[in-house]
C-alpha cells in the first residue's frame, strides 16, 4: 500500500494541473476538465455501461481470445521447428508494419459492420506481443535443465510439457498483461473507423458534436476496464507463479 502513495500523489498532482489548465483555457470542446469528464461519465452512465461497453468488450474478448490461441499456436510451432520459425517469423514481424488505421476500412469492406471487422483489427494489434513473448519464454529454457531431463530419458514431448511450458508461464502472463490494454485499444480504434456501437464509436460521435467531455468519458471508462483487468491477471499470476525470481 505504502509503495502506491507516490503514484497516487503524482496522479493527484497531474489531475490538479489538468483541472487548472482546462479552467484557464475555458473551452471544454478543446480541453475538458477532469471534473467535467467525470460529470459527463455520470450523466451518460447508462448508455455507456449497458449499450456501448458490452459492445466493445465483446470485440475485445473475442479479439483477445483468438489472439491468445493464435499467438500460443504460432509460438509453439516456431519453437518445435526452426524451419517453421524461419518461414513465419518475418511475416509475423511484417504484420506489425501494416498501418492499422489504413487497413481497418478494408476490413469493413470485407466483413461489413459485423463484429468480425473489428475483431480482426484487434487481433492484428494484439497477437504480436503474445507470439514474441511466449516464443522467447519457450526459448529461454535452461539448456542444462533440458539436458538433465534427456539423461533421465525424456522425450521431446516430455521436455516440452515438464520444462518448457512452466518456464514460459511467467512470460505468458506478461504477454496477457500487455495484450489486454492492446486489445482494448484495438477494439476502440476499430470502432472509431467503422462501427454502429461501442465506446470507440461513441467517442467519435461525441467528436462530431464537439463535446470534449463526451469524447473523454468513454476513454476513461476503457482505461478503468483495462486497469482492473490487468490487476486481476496480476493477482492470478501472483497466486499461480510464486517462483518467477527462481528461474
Amino acid at each position: 500500500m505504502k509503495k502506491n502513495i507516490p503514484a497516487f500523489l503524482l496522479g493527484l498532482l497531474l489531475l490538479g494541473a489538468w483541472q487548472c489548465i482546462a479552467m484557464g483555457i475555458g473551452a471544454a470542446y478543446i480541453l475538458p476538465s477532469p471534473l467535467q469528464i467525470l460529470s459527463k461519465l455520470w450523466q451518460l452512465r447508462e448508455i455507456l455501461l449497458f449499450v456501448h461497453l458490452p459492445a466493445t468488450m465483446g470485440v475485445t474478448f473475442l479479439g483477445l481470445l483468438i489472439s491468445v490461441v493464435l499467438g500460443l499456436f504460432l509460438a509453439v510451432i516456431m519453437d518445435i521447428s526452426p524451419k517453421i520459425e524461419n518461414a513465419l517469423y518475418p511475416f509475423i514481424v511484417a504484420s506489425q508494419t501494416i498501418p492499422t488505421t489504413a487497413i481497418a476500412p478494408l476490413f469493413v469492406l470485407w466483413f461489413g459492420y459485423s463484429i468480425w471487422s473489428k475483431v480482426l483489427v484487434t487481433i492484428l494489434i494484439t497477437f504480436f506481443p503474445i507470439v514474441i513473448t511466449v516464443y522467447d519464454g519457450l526459448k529461454a529454457t535452461k539448456r542444462e535443465m533440458e539436458e538433465l531431463l534427456m539423461t533421465y530419458g525424456a522425450t521431446k514431448k516430455d521436455i516440452f510439457i515438464k520444462l518448457k511450458l512452466p518456464t514460459a508461464l511467467p512470460p505468458f502472463f506478461s504477454a496477457i498483461k500487455m495484450a489486454i490494454p492492446l486489445s482494448i485499444i484495438g477494439a476502440a480504434i476499430a470502432e472509431w473507423l467503422g462501427a454502429q456501437s461501442g465506446l470507440g464509436y461513441f467517442s467519435k460521435r461525441m467528436m462530431t458534436q464537439l463535446d470534449g467531455a463526451g469524447v473523454f468519458a468513454p476513454i476513461v471508462l476503457l482505461s478503468m476496464v483495462a486497469m482492473i483487468s490487468v490487476a486481476i491477471v496480476s493477482m492470478i499470476e501472483k497466486k499461480c507463479i510464486t517462483w518467477r525470481k527462481e528461474i
Binding site: K142, L163, E246
Partner: peptide, 9 residues
C-alpha cells in the same frame, strides 16, 4: 550436475 537444477515450480 554442479547446480542442483531443481525445478522451482
Amino acid at each position: 550436475p554442479q547446480k542442483d537444477l531443481l525445478f522451482p515450480w
